[in-house]
Amino acid sequence: MSDPKSRKTLVEEGTQFKGSLSSDCPIEVKGRIEGDLSAPALAVSPSGAVHGRIKVGEIRSQGELAGEFDADVVQLSGVVRDSTIIRAKSLEVKLAPPNGKMQVIFGECELEVGSEHAEKGTTTRAQSARPAADGAAPAPAPAPEDGSPPVEANGAN
């Protein structure tokens, strides 16, 4: 059995996952996840995308985020799509160089960051994400298309 500290759940590039995913080890997303997700940590690579309701201890994203995110610590770059809510005790976004590419692109979104959020608890969720500006539905957790029960993956790959 592998060292639990070195384990992680990997959603590889080219892989699309829809449904609920709960893991007791960190999740790394190079592909695409749509749905509910809970884990101690989530890393989204530049090729990765995570859409849905996410509750994790830590997020490090260089990819695309959409939906509702509750976390203690968030490090952001990449893209935050419309109708996204990020709640965190701590958020870090680094400043892009003046003539370089943008560190992060924010669509229409909400940020709730800081001590007051911590007092309220990270379990407080918005009732629903606001409708997207282009009229599209927000990105909550969609049910698996085939009606199968939520998938739980631990230590895959």
């Binding site: 958020l91 892009a96 669509g107 940020l111 500006a133």
Partner: peptide, 22 residues
């Protein structure tokens, strides 16, 4: 944000109750 978008930077320890619009 302006049409060319805003360059954002947030340091850990900041407090935000913020909406971002294009």
């Amino acid at each position: 944000q302006p049409s060319e978008l805003t360059r954002f930077a947030f340091e850990p320890g900041c407090m935000l109750r913020m909406k971002i619009h294009a």
